[in-house]
Design a protein around this nucleic acid. Structure first.
Lengths: 330, 330
DNA sequence: CTGAAAGCGCTTACAG
DNA sequence: CTGAAAGCGCTTACAG
């Protein structure tokens, strides 16, 4: 049995209340002498506080939970790093839970694990909650915020990039290089994020006076496999001179498949990735990207939940990072 | 304020004890009629159990904590998937904590976050604990097990691959292809894992009657950067015909740098990675690897902690996976 | 400065 | 089958 506050009290010859006060360092509430006795006793017993018990009485907690989609893309790490760093500044601890891959049962398990204990707030990293799970979350009355995902139908707090701009700027980048026949590969139009990217793409193309051929937009779930499938659909004689990968992983799928189809990248085909995680620098040629600021999303998420009353929907900046996968057309 | 068991009791016109019994579904301890009343009341109030309170009285918990090194390598995901799957089978919930990058202060924070609440057991994924933190962990009396890391000096439970065999088999694979001048890149000899891999490498080389040149072994921390640095140290005229990357990331670093130095892979230089995570399939040529069974490590980790009395040190199997980065020499 | 007491939300012998 | 009571480990007004 681990030592409790009572054991310390007995050993130090004081009351449990006093032990609690010195261990919580309530200055002015105990004498120097008592403080020393208690601390010595605690050390001797190897005392470890039972924080769960303390949280029960104070009705508050300093842990924030991050629920992540065990996604086929890979931007969770920088978001989590941002969360950790900012949480540290606020003296908060963070625990991470996996919610599976759009598996509503796994989502529910992660959610209840977290709701059934005192957590201060919940961050959801690009997890698209099933309706009943969203209800569960909202009923819990625990403050929450979605990260790296956006919504239109439902009114919930989220922080992410401006996905319309992501699509628009990606397309503009390629247009400025003289490309006209531009593909968009692996994007998921079932959700708001993907629809926005497609809309930005279409707008840029329209402004350039280019008619988008239906087959130029290849839907998918942002995965490597989706990128491969898209490129296979485009084929060896696609007529495309540039392709936007809907995510880094999709872009790598496009890259590898394009190669096997005989394309030289970027000589025959330019590829622009969306996300800008480290994977862009691992492949050759290194992929240029419209990079999101994932770290900042994590930071902003924690800040938002620490400063209630802020506006519930926030945009983090994006930027073009040029590497080696783009080339002027003509 | 969230609804409690007392609120339900009042609404259903029974005692809190009874509510507890029906919600815990202690069959035989309540009548059908009472059961229905209570469940209806709970539903009406949107009751969410306070599991922390329950854990306080029962003195047990069903959450297992996984502490992960936010490492520059990338095998944590499959281990965590294994943990999740097996935990699910035992009806356990898992929370994940980041312990930073060999940062003893961050380790301590993650550890205390977990020790200060009721967790059933702790899994540590390739985190090399600072001495004082190991003491902290051991004093907590919470069952724990290290994963994907091994030790010689200290006696603790761990589950990992046989690192000596990893080094030995990697080297053998290359020797069988006729290579003699074989480099080992990015390995960390400060720890047992790395020392074992080096020892296996040396043994295989010795059995083949080859004298290992000191510069063939390039130390590092298994990162992409370490791989780059190693390859730069080998240089354009290394005389090596094959290189073992101490990790996937190190191997990719070797690959990209070798290319920029003018090597064709695998024509001029064969590369064999250690780990076998998905990154091997993302680069071109796809990297052959000595693959570890990370998923199985996760599974075995929770099994081990669910079945005390098992032997505390376990080995998971490795295997050669051939992809496109190896070629016969001569 | 310190102790006694109440209470956080739950569970579980103990009676009946 | 059900209630009253004690208790898990802690915190915090309230007295003194």
């Amino acid at each position: 049995m681990a030592a409790t506050i009572k054991d310390i009290a007995k050993l130090a010859g004081v009351s449990p209340g006093t032990v609690s006060r010195v261990l919580a360092n309530k200055v002015g509430f105990f004498s120097e002498h008592t403080g020393e006795k208690v601390r010595a006793a605690a050390a001797e017993l190897g005392y470890q506080k039972n924080t769960a018990a303390a949280e029960l009485v104070t009705q508050q907690s300093n842990v924030v939970a991050a629920i992540v989609n065990s996604t086929k893309t890979n931007f969770a790490s920088p978001i989590i790093e941002g969360i950790q760093a900012e949480a540290h500044r606020h003296d908060l601890n963070v625990i991470i839970l996996y919610a599976g891959d759009d598996d509503s049962e796994q989502q529910r398990r992660a959610l209840t694990t977290v709701i059934e204990r005192p957590v201060r707030s919940i961050l959801l990293l690009s997890v698209d909650l099933a309706a009943e799970n969203l209800t569960l979350l909202q009923n819990s009355r625990i403050p929450f915020c979605f990260l790296s995902i956006s919504f239109d139908e439902i009114q919930v707090p989220y922080i992410t990039s401006d996905d319309w701009q992501v699509g628009y700027q990606a397309t503009q980048t390629l247009l400025k290089l003289g490309h006209q026949n531009i593909g968009l590969a692996g994007v998921d139009s079932d959700f708001h994020t993907g629809r926005q990217r497609v809309a930005g793409y279409r707008q840029a193309m329209q402004e350039a006076g280019i008619t988008v051929q239906p087959e130029w937009i290849q839907l998918g779930n942002y995965s490597y496999t989706a990128g491969q499938a898209a490129m296979r659909a485009y084929g060896a004689n696609s007529g495309l001179t540039a392709i936007i990968g809907a995510s880094d992983m999709a872009a790598v799928g496009v890259l590898n498949t394009a190669r096997s189809l005989g394309y030289r990248v970027p000589t025959d085909l330019s590829i622009l990735a969306i996300d800008g995680t480290e994977i862009c620098e691992l492949v050759q040629p290194a992929l240029s990207s419209i990079s999101q600021n994932f770290y900042e999303m994590g930071v902003a998420g924690v800040q938002q939940l620490c400063a209630p009353g802020e506006l519930p929907q926030k945009i983090t900046p994006i930027k073009l990072v040029e590497r080696d996968s783009l080339q002027r057309n003509g």
